[in-house]
Amino acid sequence: MFQLAVCAEMVFRELPFVERVRAIARLGFQVEIWDWTKHDIDALVSTGAVFSSMTGYISGDLVTRPGAAQLLETAEQSIEVAKRLRCPRLNLHGTGLGRQGLPMTPAAATTGDMWLAAYRTLSDVAQLGRRAGVTFCLENLNTDVDHPGVPFARAADTLALVAAVDSAHLRLNLDLYHAQIGEGNLIELVRRALPYVGEIQVADVPGRCEPGTGEIHYPAIARALAEAGYRGTIALEAWASGSNELSLQRFRDAFTV
């Protein structure tokens, strides 16, 4: 019913990256990657894997003039790589992320001017996606555990921005791990956000491992998504709690309805 993908940055970590991609593909999953500049793109193409998502920029932010220009410039570079990988979705955040997921341009507060600037930047991103035939996805993050200081981090923020731009080439990457930490009420959230969702990412809380290792009852969320008519991508962006193969099977089981 759903298209299942797995982030190669977080599982099979004992293997070289290209071998991780092959292992995920052999198990029948699509593949997601983060910063494409850290990988051999020709080698990734040679795996024959289906790539569902990748980071859609190298640097920049949504709110400053230099940052927005940088984000758009590096988004164009990312589109060329996405075409080589036949990857339909490119992921964005409120600002560039550095080491350990910390924001390159942290924000103590988000002002009205910042909201307007983010709307303008994302409108330009959507036009870029329309011309290239790809979809950019704005991901929500949590600021309590993993990404303190990221502006427009909550799912409520990303939903408001994507709805305001209202383009088929700018959608949500709705990350339920981050949303559980920051907001909760996940089934109601997915129902409200579904018209704007480009894909959904999952991991359990606490620990950010596969479904079944924490407090989120993902089978209930899977049923709610199915009943609401969602047939898109659900991606595991999680650490394996033990065996990689078992972790991926638990993910598959949670979203088999």
Rank of each mutant, 00 (worst) to 15 (best):
M10N: 13
G96W: 11
P195C: 03
E199M: 15
L246C: 01
N185C: 10
C7Y: 05
Y119E: 14
L102K: 13
A118V: 04
A222W: 11
L194K: 06
Q201V: 02
F136C: 06
V190Q: 02
Y230A: 04
A69F: 01
S243K: 01
T74R: 06
D144I: 04
V150E: 03
L15H: 09
K83I: 03
L172I: 04
W115D: 00
L186D: 02
L225P: 03
L246Q: 14
E80A: 15
S53A: 14
A254F: 04
L170T: 13
R22K: 15
W115H: 02
V165A: 09
Q3H: 12
T47F: 08
L62N: 12
N173A: 11
I24W: 12
I58A: 09
V31P: 11
K38T: 12
N91Y: 01
P206T: 11
L44D: 10
V6P: 06
L4A: 12
A220Y: 02
T64E: 09
R130Q: 15
L174W: 00
L97Y: 06
V190R: 03
R89W: 08
Y230W: 09
Q77D: 12
S78V: 04
Y119P: 00
V6F: 12
S52A: 14
E73T: 09
V31R: 05
A164P: 02
S167C: 06
M54G: 07
T121A: 07
D146T: 10
A153P: 11
P151Y: 11
S167M: 08
V11I: 15
A126D: 13
L189W: 03
A69N: 14
R86Q: 14
T111K: 09
E227D: 14
L102A: 12
G207V: 08
I234N: 10
N142A: 06
C209V: 10
S59W: 10
Q201R: 05
V205G: 00
A23V: 12
F29H: 05
V257L: 15
V145F: 11
Y230I: 05
F51W: 10
S52H: 14
Y230L: 03
A179M: 02
Q127E: 12
G207Y: 09
I79A: 08
L97C: 05
A132Q: 10
R13S: 02
K83Q: 15
L194Q: 08
G149I: 05
A108N: 13
E80C: 04
Q180K: 05
K38D: 13
A69M: 12
H217V: 08
E215L: 11
T95N: 06
T74V: 01
S247P: 01
H93A: 15
V162H: 00
A226V: 10
H217F: 14
D40G: 07
P219R: 08
G133R: 10
A126G: 13
G184L: 08
G232I: 09
S46F: 02
S59P: 00
V190S: 00
M114F: 01
V257Y: 13
L27T: 03
S167Q: 10
G129I: 12
V50C: 07
T64V: 08
V190C: 01
K83H: 14
S243I: 01
T55D: 02
T37G: 01
G232S: 07
S123P: 00
A193H: 00
I58N: 02
R231D: 11
A126L: 13
